[in-house]
């Protein structure tokens, strides 16, 4: 197999290039893309990428794998490989810092803009706030987001307006709190979303749904927010 990796080291490279590595895959088992990267890095330590949990829950190693955004630690080589080639590039739509490492600050800023924390202006009870199993179920498919940015960086609307359109990940978080029966700031949250960009730049392309390594559905969450805005506004 040939692995091609996007390389760019500021101060060393004047412009980005693709570097090619030969890699012999084992016969007896499938590897994850991250395992291949770790092997290559043991030989060429200069390859830069982020990684931590290596089990698809920390969200560090989002990258473009043969043109598709995904987590390296959760993408089997057999699924990604095409004509014996594996092409690894940084997530699109964010500035590259080095090699496969992108500057995620814009992504985090959009996350922070939705006030990603519970707001409840009622007095705190001595114990926990009660929540029915039905109400808790509404958070499934929302709270599991790992902030890997695979969805947001696959979204054309985010590419065009990364500073104004919140992007699927932030909007999923926004709906996670709108949907929480314990949150009392629905009106306030909605009023912050009623501009032509934050939510309404979503065109329903659904790249986000395709890209999400946790099988979440940000488009659905965005539609729910729109429905809430319509209900709230009429």
């Amino acid at each position: 197999m040939q692995v091609s990796i996007y390389r760019y080291i500021p101060g060393k490279d004047t412009e980005p290039r693709m570097q090619h590595y030969d890699y012999v895959l084992p016969d007896d088992r499938d590897l994850m893309v991250l395992e291949v990267l770790e092997d290559l890095k043991a030989k060429d330590p200069s390859i830069g990428y982020r990684r931590s949990c290596r089990e698809g829950v920390c969200g560090s190693d989002g990258m473009s794998i043969n043109g598709r955004n995904g987590l390296a630690c959760k993408t089997p080589v057999s699924e990604a490989i095409s004509r014996d080639k594996l092409m690894l590039r940084p997530l699109p739509g964010l500035p590259v810092i080095r090699d496969l490492i992108v500057d995620m600050s814009q992504f985090y800023r959009q996350y922070e803009r939705v006030d990603p924390f519970l707001k409840n202006d009622t007095a705190k009870p001595a114990q926990e706030r009660l929540q029915s199993q039905e109400d808790r179920k509404k958070l499934d498919g929302l709270y599991e987001c790992i902030l890997c940015a695979c969805c947001t960086t696959s979204c054309p609307s985010f590419w065009w307006n990364p500073d104004k359109f919140l992007g699927p990940a932030a909007l999923l978080q926004s709906y996670r709190f709108l949907a929480d029966s314990r949150d009392t700031a629905t009106e306030e949250r909605l009023s912050k979303l009623d501009d032509p960009f934050s939510v309404f730049r979503c065109r329903g392309v659904m790249n986000c749904v395709n890209a999400c390594p946790k099988d979440l559905n940000p488009t659905k969450a965005i539609n729910e927010i729109r429905t809430l805005l319509v209900k709230n506004g009429t």
């Binding site: 924390f117 199993q133 709270y143 709190f177 929480d180």
Partner: peptide, 13 residues
């Protein structure tokens, strides 16, 4: 109270 989405019992605890 911070919002941790705990699973719930039938009584909501």
């Amino acid at each position: 109270h911070m919002g941790l989405p705990f699973s719930r019992t039938e009584s909501g605890r």
